[in-house]
Amino acid sequence: MEPVVNTRTARWGSYIVAFLITAIIFATAVYASNYFNNKRIADVQATQDNISIDILSLETQFDLLAEHSCEDISENSVLSTEIQPLASRLSYLETQQGVNQDELTRLKRYYTLLQIKDLLLMQQVANKCNLKPVNILYFYSNKGDCTDCEKQGYALTGLSEKYPTLRVYSFDYNIGLAALQTLVDIHDVKNQLPALVINNKVYYGLHTMDDIEKIAPALLKLATSTATSTKVR
């Protein structure tokens, strides 16, 4: 390449064009990011709608078959398996910048309602079919006032992975949903988080996997149960 040398005169036109090109690059990046975030929101929304249909379907099925067909209920249980992965998807969206916060809060409230519905239905199934479910209600806060909530979350994730049929229901204590407030009142859960409700008893503070296994020995039975049987025992 041949030498080129010029005066250093400022060229304001070039500065402006470079600025516009850079702005277009950034605008494209923000647009692309928003596009993918919206797609994620839509995915979560679709999953929640599916869960809602699942729950309604099970309720209907349950009503139709009544108590004499518990065997059918347990074997064909359709308690949604999608509800648990949804929690981690929502947690992930919470960490992403550029996600519409109002939309996310709406999804979280909807998710909370679905969990409560799932919980109630499971209790109904358990009562009528004489099952002994093991589930954990977990109350947390992500307002920065719960230092142990992150660790508690890991312990519960670890338990869920160890016992795939265990159902952990996670509730944001501060989500401001009347149905959740009722659940909090029923179990008398105080704002001392993290809080776990196991077998209708409330436990405050951080509990490791070992602690929880000691509190709920029925978990050990889950370890030996097969995935083809009912979701809850």
Partner: peptide, 25 residues
């Protein structure tokens, strides 16, 4: 690892691919 143990990561899910604007830039 301390609180939840070591577990194999679940299968690849496009949902978790980072698509933040900063990364694009």
């Amino acid at each position: 690892i301390e609180y939840g143990g070591i577990h194999m990561p679940s299968s690849f899910d496009l949902f978790y691919v980072n698509t933040s604007a900063v990364l694009f830039v």
